[in-house]
């Protein structure tokens, strides 16, 4: 079964083709980061218009890469939410209409389900059940995954997402927004333990996160210290260590509580090298294993949507002819799929 995946929830246009037996056949991505960088943030309307411009050429490129014609497709999966409504509508309209034209099923997919199943596209596939840490600019969640669509929310951020804390702290350091990855690069030259940052919400039970206070702590530390590059790098290091430690502590707690040993980490922040290393070390220590998607599939992409959609379409799930977008869509409200 050939499934076309369409991802347009934010500022990346991602198109991919996944075959239920042959695996991933094509993957095309256009990032609008440069477009939005000129404005210092995402511009929802510009994002939508840019998706409109890029989506059809990217679908054509993906078909060419897979050496397929549109009539070879057996189903279309598009991101229905959560995300920016205007951006979601582009993928939803194109996906739903194209499927109607071809007489094949279409399905709206949950963006975060895509992320948490992204490691399934790798050679080393985690078995269910596992714990997933979804960590990006918009989300920080710990989810117990018992199967496709069988998600139990164990904890999430009560305020800022981890990636958001990175981006905002980067801004406090004078880096252009969103500067999370550049802050991480700065931290690499910082010396450890020059500054003490709190590990929020680790001193009490529970799996929720809070990163808003770290940003405030960073602002106070920046204001109280000189602005030479080494000091800045040291502060970046202290900040990153605090975020990474907090994430690791909560992952450890989630594994202990559930007795599971497999951890999947996905979302933009899962590309963070320090986080990867610390989680690998910790997993090795407990005789467990941590699974990451390849860096290209940590951030938004069409492959994860094609994969998640293919699992659901194969199980017979499909939507009617309405164009569905759900800008707010709790992950634990999804239907389960038996495979």
């Amino acid at each position: 079964m050939h499934v076309l995946g369409i991802e347009t929830s934010c500022d990346e246009t991602g198109i991919a083709i996944y075959h239920t037996e042959r695996g991933l056949l094509a993957h095309q991505l256009y990032s609008q980061v440069k477009l939005h960088a000129d404005y210092g943030g995402v511009v929802p309307e510009l994002a939508s218009r840019d998706h409109v411009r890029k989506i059809l050429p990217l679908i054509a490129a993906a078909l060419k890469q897979a050496e397929l014609k549109t009539t070879d497709l057996d189903g279309i999966a598009y991101t229905a939410g959560p995300g920016l409504v205007g951006a979601l509508l582009v993928g939803a309209c194109v996906g739903r209409s194209m499927a109607f034209g071809l007489g094949i099923p279409a399905l709206g997919v949950h963006h975060m389900e895509g992320h948490l199943l992204a490691p399934m596209l790798e050679d080393d596939v985690p078995e269910f059940p596992f714990i997933a840490l979804l960590v990006s600019g918009g989300h920080t969640q710990l989810v117990r995954v018992d199967g496709i669509g069988r998600y139990e929310m164990l904890g999430e951020s009560i305020d800022d997402a981890a990636g958001e804390a990175f981006d905002k702290t980067a801004k406090l350091m004078g880096l252009d927004y969103p500067g999370g990855p550049r802050l991480a690069a700065m931290a690499a030259t910082g010396r450890p333990q020059q500054y003490q940052f709190p590990r929020p919400m680790t001193d009490r039970p529970g799996l929720d996160f809070s990163f808003s206070g770290l940003k405030t702590h960073a602002a106070n530390t920046i204001a109280a210290n000189p602005s030479d590059p080494q000091t800045r790098a040291d502060i970046a290091r202290a900040f990153q260590d605090a975020v990474v430690d907090t994430l690791v502590i909560k992952c450890r707690r989630a594994l202990e509580q559930t007795g599971l040993k497999r951890l999947v980490v996905a979302g933009g922040v899962s590309a963070n090298v320090e986080l990867r290393e610390k989680l690998q070390q910790f997993a090795a220590k407990i005789g467990g294993k941590v699974y990451f998607p390849r860096p290209a599939f940590c951030t938004d992409n069409g492959a994860m949507i094609a994969y998640a959609g293919a699992q659901r379409l194969r199980a017979g799930e499909l939507n009617d002819l309405s164009i569905i977008t759900r800008p707010r869509w709790p992950l634990d409200q999804l239907a389960s799929v038996s495979c």
Binding site: P44, P82, L84, G137, G138, E156, S157, I158, D159, D160, A161, E164, K168, S212, P327, R328
Partner: peptide, 10 residues
């Protein structure tokens, strides 16, 4: 419940 930052969703 939680009051999540609306930065990403506006």
């Amino acid at each position: 419940g939680k009051v999540k930052s609306p930065t990403y969703t506006l």
